[in-house]
Nucleic acid binder design. Structure first.
Length: 517
RNA sequence: GCGGGUGUAGCUCAAUGGUAGAGUGCUAGCCUUCCAAGCUAGCUAUGCGGGUUCGAUUCCCGUCACCCGCUCCA
């Protein structure tokens, strides 16, 4: 996820209007998202989707699946792309996570400064050793290029001849020598704690014996389940490179600090697609997918003003992406990052890292033989990966939709794009008598087979409109006392509160047409 | 994991070392001819655990959760 960047909003955005407190309160009050195990006091970093939340999440997920697997985009050459779906197991052979690098690199040893309460990643620090007296200074690598740091170092070491000091990785300093270490933000010795590991993968045990030999991991990303099936797809599914494999599913990370509602939770859902191509074409496809993915977020209702593409800095790139054409994040201006942005999706060139690793560890050939060109060639495909956060996408849609409007009873409404709205239409008899409920129910039974519809006869009509504003229902259809006579109903539009009279037998088609826009 | 803050009905907010009250919401009924109208009845709370005390929602300790900052984030 991106560094929050100080970008001035060009115009009024949703992020200026909604506070997270208001959004979280609405999500609970209207049944979008609840804290997990709430009656037991909750559990840090886990959330439950309520009736409205799961409808919204499924709408976003289904749209992604449709636009990736059912009807993938037309490629840059005008040819339709080939993408297939899988649904792999959450638990795999633990060797898969050794091969992918997660067992080793999902450990981040940290040291704390007891004095300043600051925390540092051990492997991001360097040790400056004064061999004359054994004194050790710890600094961030990049801080050594800072004049102030160098000045402090000269002063503390009591010499101007810094070249006499030896710079080595801090990881090379044994914990028993920490007593001689002066931390980055203090001038006292011995304030750093021993490094502590934070393993970000959830462990579990397979089988009943639960010994160390039975350890397995909950997947920290869905991507590996795709690489593990790459060979099955190539061998059995009559595909040619380039092609893609897509998957939606849960992933688990034991985050040090879950924060910001569902933005960083320990159990979350990803929508990932791995695009396999020839190494020479990686750049072309990277650019294609970057563009396609940003447009997709706009298509589901995220305003371009709240979206940005942010290329990763070189030192920010993942281990697998260092040699590639790079990584770009699609970022959204979340309420808690505004005026900066936070990651919604990452498009990464993973090179051939994963397939090569699995080839090494499994002993199975991952090479692809391409005889569609002359001369025929063998290669391990490179991968372009658009990896989106479904959970984060839901949060973006919620934040984007929240619209204050003091002129209406609800004071606000959820301006979902109609196709994403949890409830598409509500059927409301104006009165609970005079045959109105009978007409309304008949319409409701018909409409609910086509799209999510609610029947609501409780309270007066104003209260019902207000509730549907709060859950973002784009269309309310009211059956009134004229309906039995003129066979027409009133449709009320969420965003404008305007009303229109439509024939009873045309209303369903009317809504269906409106949902496509 | 560290530091600071918070924790009373679904929500917003009162009160108190002596058994918690309002508004709103919700439920049922009446009523109701298009934007939270009205009437009647009803439901719902001191996060959890321990201590001090005759008695704790109130004071103390612990814990859990949330918020802010740090840290981290394939």
């Amino acid at each position: 996820m991106g560094n929050a960047q100080a970008v001035e909003p060009k115009n009024t955005t949703v992020s200026d209007k909604v506070s997270m407190d208001e959004l979280v309160a609405l999500c609970k009050r209207r049944g979008f998202i609840f804290s997990a195990s709430e009656i037991y006091g909750g559990i840090n970093g886990f959330w439950d989707f309520g009736p409205l939340g799961v409808l919204l999440k499924n709408n976003l997920r289904d749209r992604w699946w449709n636009d990736m697997v059912i009807a993938p985009p037309i490629g840059p050459d005008g040819e339709p792309l080939q993408i297939m779906g899988v649904d792999s197991s959450i638990i795999q052979n633990p060797k898969a996570w050794v091969a992918s690098g997660h067992v080793d690199t999902f450990n981040d040893p940290m040291v704390d400064c007891k004095l300043t309460k600051l925390r540092y990643r051990q492997d991001h620090l360097v040790a400056v050793v004064d061999e004359r007296n054994g004194q050790i200074f710890a600094f961030y690598q990049e801080a050594l290029e800072d004049k102030g740091t160098l000045k402090k170092l000269k002063k503390q070491a009591g010499t101007d001849e810094l070249e006499k000091l030896k710079v080595i990785p801090f990881t090379a300093i044994p914990a028993s020598d920490y007593g001689k270490v002066i931390g980055p933000d203090t001038d006292q010795k011995g304030t750093l704690t021993e490094p502590r590991k934070f393993n970000l993968m959830f462990k579990t045990y397979v089988g009943a014996t639960a010994t160390e030999d039975d350890i397995a991991y909950l997947r920290p990303e869905t991507a590996q389940g795709i690489f593990l099936n790459y060979k099955n797809i190539v061998d059995n599914m009559r595909v040619r490179v380039p092609f893609g494999i897509a998957q939606v599913g849960k992933a688990f990370r034991n985050e040090v600090t879950p924060r910001n509602f569902i933005y960083r939770s320990r159990e979350f859902e990803q929508m990932e697609m791995e695009w396999f191509c020839h190494p020479d074409e990686a750049k072309k496809w990277f650019e294609f997918w970057t563009d396609a993915r940003k447009k997709w977020w706009e298509a589901v209702g995220v305003s371009p003003a709240n979206l940005q593409l942010r290329p990763h800095d070189k030192d920010e790139l993942s281990h697998y992406a260092k040699a590639g054409v790079g990584t770009v994040d699609v970022e959204y201006r979340f309420p808690f990052t505004a005026p900066g942005f936070g990651e919604l999706e990452g498009i990464a060139h993973r090179c051939d890292f994963d397939l090569t690793q699995h080839e090494k560890h499994s002993g199975k050939k991952m090479e692809y033989f391409d005889d569609s060109v002359q001369p025929p060639r063998r290669f391990i495909p490179h991968v372009i990966e658009p990896a989106a956060g479904l959970t984060r996408g839901v949060l973006a849609l919620l934040a984007e939709a929240y619209t204050a409007d003091p002129s209406r009873p609800s004071q606000m409404y959820m301006k979902f794009k109609p196709s994403m709205a949890p409830v598409k239409a509500a059927v409301l008899p104006l009165l609970n008598k005079d045959g109105l409920p009978e007409i309304a129910q008949k319409l409701y039974y018909s409409m609910r087979t086509k799209f999510m519809t609610e029947y609501d006869a409780k309270g007066n009509i104003g209260k019902r409109y207000a509730r549907h504003d709060e859950i973002g229902t784009p269309f309310c259809i009211t059956i009134d006392t004229d309906t039995p006579k003129d066979q027409a109903v009133t449709i009320r539009f969420r965003d404008t509160m305007a009303q229109e009279r439509v024939a009873l037998d045309k209303i369903e088609t009317f809504v269906q047409t409106a949902l496509k826009e």
